[in-house]
Structure formats: structure tokens, C-alpha cells
């Protein structure tokens, strides 16, 4: 594994939510890798391993270009195999759905919105309408939330379950995926399909972005942003300059995650309330606009400003 290349520069700490919370180098990629270089047992680094949000900011900061999040996922798998966090593994395994026999979707464009956005039907209708302008986009029946959780935790996904998730997607030419980790995996599993981050795609629609103002704080979905950083940073930078809105980008131009959703919900280690406060710190804004439904739920908990999903900048679905 590439952790042997870490020489302890501390750059990964600068955008790391778990380090920010703990202020303890043990809770950072550097701390995990240095511990391993000094013969730490997996059990000794397990708390830090499972605190990582896999937001991907550190991958961009590492001057040694270590695949930090990839290494952490591998280490999580190894931790489970050596008997660490048995209860957590069991719980995630129990969430992995039984394979179903889903027919191929009869659509070129499919949206995988995730459970949180699906629980907001009015917003989801707008999302679907906004993404159907060129070709009708249909909603996937299977959100793959269990698969995203297993990917995040490092739990093995059975071939049957993976197949049942992928089979209905095989015919599509384009997929819009809300979850950044799922997006990353789908790029490997469906290399011939155009795979787009849902939030990023919505943020490219001028009918939405022209409604952003300098009184808005715009929350970029961190994982997808970091995954395609070279492309996304230019886009969001332009958005920031054009509309004057604030964003959750830090000085390194990495997106600060809310820590909402996924493994941190099941096994809370990072305080999403504190993350939200840090995102808001110093920004005097009237609205918070989110790309990701889970981020919206987390920011709404702070009870400070109205929180809107970006699709809700469109008042009615039939305005599209």
C-alpha cells in the first residue's frame, strides 16, 4: 500500500474534518500512515480509520500523490477481516438488500437520486424535469444506498447484489448519480456509460444558477467535487465569481463536507453540527443552497437560514 510514501508534511491535515474535530494527528491520514509505518496493529488505528468521511480533500493535497481514500477503504476492509468492528460490519451487511430481478430500464438517461432526495418528492420532480430537457430522464428504482454504504465502510458487496443493482442501468447512455462514492464505483463498473454527478450537473443549469445571489451560501457536494476536481474547480470558481455567492470551499479550494449521511449516520464520529457551524463561520448569508439532500438536512438542523435544494430555485417543475 502507498502509505509507506507518507513523509509527514501535514498538508492532509489542512482540509481534514476528522483532524479538525479531534486536533490530534492520530486522526488524520498522516497519523494513520505514520502509525502503520511504525508497526501499529489495525486495532490501534481503527477509531481513526472509521472516523474518516472519505471526502477526498486529502487526495488532492498530498504532495506524494498517495491514494489516501483508496488506502483507507482498503484498510477498513482489512480491519473487518481481522475481526475489528464486527457489529458495524454486521449492521451494514444486514442493510445490503437481497438481489432482485430488475429488468433493464427503457431509458437512455437514468437518475440515481439516493434515499434522502427521494424522500423529497416535490424536489425530485423538479430534478427530473431539469435533467430531462435533452432526453427524458427516468428515476432508478434502486438507489443503491446500501451499496454506497458498503463501499464507504469497506464491506464486501456480493456479486449478486452488485449485479442486481447494475443490471437495470446497463442500457443507459447517461447516469446522474447523487452519491460521490457510488459515482466513483460506477465509473469502474460501467466504463462505457457517461456518469455525471447529480449536484454538479444541476449547478451547470443557468436557469438555476442565475438565481443565486451574493446573499447565498452554496454548498457543493464534497465527494463528487473532489473526485473530478480539475473540472469542477473551474466551474464552481466561475459560478462564485459570476453570481457572487459564497461557497463551502476552503482556502485550499476543497469543499468542506457537512458529514451528513452515509457511514457517519450509522456510526457517528464526526459532529455534523460542528461541521455546519464551521461552514457558516464568518459568512453572513440569507439562504443556504445545497446540491445534496443530506447536506440540506444537516444545515437545516442549525436553524439559522432557510435551506433550499438547488432544484428548488425553480418554483415549479413545469417552469422548466
Amino acid at each position: 500500500m502507498s502509505h509507506t510514501k507518507c513523509h509527514g508534511c501535514s498538508l492532509c491535515l489542512l482540509s481534514c474534518p476528522m483532524w479538525r474535530q479531534e486536533r490530534d494527528v492520530q486522526y488524520s491520514p498522516q497519523g494513520i500512515f505514520k502509525a502503520l509505518q511504525h508497526n501499529a496493529a489495525l486495532s490501534e488505528i481503527t477509531p481513526a480509520l472509521f472516523s474518516c468521511l472519505l471526502c477526498g480533500a486529502c487526495d488532492l493535497l498530498c504532495p506524494e500523490q498517495i491514494d489516501i481514500t483508496g488506502t483507507i477503504k482498503t484498510l477498513r476492509r482489512a480491519a473487518f477481516s481481522s475481526g475489528e468492528h464486527r457489529a458495524l460490519k454486521k449492521e451494514i451487511e444486514s442493510q445490503l438488500k437481497r438481489p432482485t430481478t430488475e429488468a433493464k430500464a427503457e431509458a437512455n438517461t437514468i437518475i440515481i437520486p439516493g434515499g434522502a432526495l427521494r424522500s423529497m418528492p416535490a424536489t425530485l420532480t423538479k430534478v427530473q424535469a431539469l435533467l430531462s430537457r435533452e432526453a427524458r430522464a427516468v428515476l432508478a428504482k434502486d438507489d443503491g444506498d446500501d451499496i454506497a454504504l458498503a463501499l464507504e465502510a469497506g464491506v464486501e458487496i456480493s456479486e449478486h447484489r452488485r449485479h442486481s443493482f447494475l443490471e437495470p442501468l446497463q442500457g443507459a447512455k447517461r447516469l446522474y448519480v447523487s452519491n460521490g462514492l457510488l459515482l466513483q464505483a460506477l465509473r469502474k463498473w460501467l466504463p462505457a456509460t457517461a456518469l455525471c454527478a447529480l449536484g454538479y450537473s444541476l449547478s451547470q443549469l443557468s436557469e438555476l444558477t442565475t438565481k443565486l445571489t451574493s446573499d447565498d451560501l452554496y454548498l457543493i457536494e464534497a465527494r463528487a467535487f473532489h473526485l473530478d476536481h480539475q473540472q469542477t474547480i473551474t466551474h464552481y470558481d466561475q459560478l462564485r465569481h459570476q453570481q457572487g455567492c459564497r461557497t463551502n470551499l476552503d482556502l485550499q479550494r476543497n469543499a468542506i463536507p457537512t458529514a451528513a449521511g452515509g457511514l457517519n449516520t450509522l456510526h457517528p464520529t464526526i459532529d455534523s453540527h460542528a461541521q455546519g457551524r464551521w461552514i457558516l463561520n464568518g459568512h453572513r448569508v440569507a439562504r443556504i443552497i445545497v446540491e445534496c439532500a443530506e447536506d440540506g438536512q444537516a444545515m437545516a438542523q442549525l436553524n439559522e437560514q432557510p435551506v433550499l435544494h438547488i432544484a428548488d430555485l425553480m418554483e415549479h417543475a413545469n417552469d422548466v
Binding site: 513523509h7 509527514g8 508534511c9 494527528v25 492520530q26 498522516q30 497519523g31 505514520k34 502509525a35 502503520l36 509505518q37 511504525h38 508497526n39 501499529a40 490501534e44 488505528i45
Partner: peptide, 15 residues
């Protein structure tokens, strides 16, 4: 005082 704790600080930027 575990080795993996102390080893984290084994050298500085000079190396």
C-alpha cells in the same frame, strides 16, 4: 508511549 504514537514524530521536515 506506544511505538506507533512516538514514531509519528521520529523526524522533522529536514529528515
Amino acid at each position: 508511549s506506544a511505538q506507533h504514537n512516538t514514531g509519528t514524530y521520529v523526524t522533522d521536515a529536514g529528515g
